[in-house]
Design a protein around this nucleic acid. Sequence first.
DNA 1: TTATGATTAGTGAGTGCTCACTTACTAATT
DNA 2: AATTAGTAAGTGAGCACTCACTAATCATAA
Lengths: 215, 215
Amino acid sequence: MTTPNKVTDLFNQSVDDSDLSAKQKSVLQASLTLFSEKGFDRTSTSDIAKLANVSEGTVYKQFKTKEGLLHAILTPAIQQVVPKIANDFLTELLQNNNTDFKDFLKWLAQDRMTFAVENQAQLRILIQEIARSDGMFKRLGDTFMGKIAVHANTLFQKYQDNGQLIQWPMPRIARYIASAIMGYILPVILRNDHNLDIAQSSEEVAEFLYRGLKP
Amino acid sequence: MTTPNKVTDLFNQSVDDSDLSAKQKSVLQASLTLFSEKGFDRTSTSDIAKLANVSEGTVYKQFKTKEGLLHAILTPAIQQVVPKIANDFLTELLQNNNTDFKDFLKWLAQDRMTFAVENQAQLRILIQEIARSDGMFKRLGDTFMGKIAVHANTLFQKYQDNGQLIQWPMPRIARYIASAIMGYILPVILRNDHNLDIAQSSEEVAEFLYRGLKP
DNA sequence: TTATGATTAGTGAGTGCTCACTTACTAATT
DNA sequence: AATTAGTAAGTGAGCACTCACTAATCATAA
């Protein structure tokens, strides 16, 4: 439970799964780099073509529009940011052994921190989109409510019945867990910092959260 | 201590302090609205002129460039996001009465939540900028280290000596306080939500933080 | 007060440039 | 032979910004 699970690198995973040509892959890679470094709106398609060493027409052969390129990058990110966590909760639920709540917190933190460090560029682009359109945040929130809420609720209930978790409403508990972990992840993404000590950080945050959330 | 202090509305404050004409003020107001709704890059100067009911030349009479407009909006925001907190800490320090740590947490949360709700548009634009250039986040971080760290350190030390605060390093404590409060503020800003129950939320977050941070 | 000159505020039709996207073409693959 | 991938020179639209001009404001002297 405390060992890190396999958190996949989104780019390599979704690129390998698709049957894109080498040139198209380098278009995606160049877009990922430039979007995260300069922002979507300040990246031109000719910039992308130059960095990818292809002609500008090639950029449009596969991804019909510039937005389509953004979509190709963000869709796998969005689909993993939220639903992957749902799976984590389920896995934890299905193992009926009574895992320590603190261990679960540490494992969750570890898992999401690993994901964040391995997908910094995508997450930065996602944050840019969230800040621009209030629709994106609501969409993520809805996905969370739809896919995670039920599992999280059940799991938290178990810990509450165990006497390991305070009797607060589930959204309140979720908010503190999410924001504390975000407190480690966001600075890393926003500073382009590549030196997050995940073992140390997840231990720390689990300790704090457990103190704040035990009955 | 638990009563909210006066948190000023940035736009009205900085606009009234300046000697801008009515038209220039409406240019600023229109920019604020459009930048926060559509993002800086997707707002054209002709959009701004239209919403402000002025000619496009007027936009450029006072604020020489579009960037200058962004600057005029963000500078007061940046100067209040961080340094205002420094002042709060100082105020708290100078009242040498032994205020309860939990009361301080509640007051701090209340203060920043009020600020955030009253300056949603500016903060949303600031978040957009933070997400785009990693320089902005570092700049805020440096301002924090320069203006707040010392005061916060002294204050936390006092609470630690009081036996009200756990003996953790100051950055760790600051991180949890900041992220927990952010957990309430960010959703409000990113969803354009205008219904944050500040009294309830600040009480809640102070309760959680105190549980997690008491020795 | 009022006429005068000067400074500033505001206008809106340009202007040149960048950019997303197209298209007519060639090269490669099957 | 036919379909697909890749090319590179367009193209038109939109944009930030300018400029020649007019309207308003204001200081000062008759």
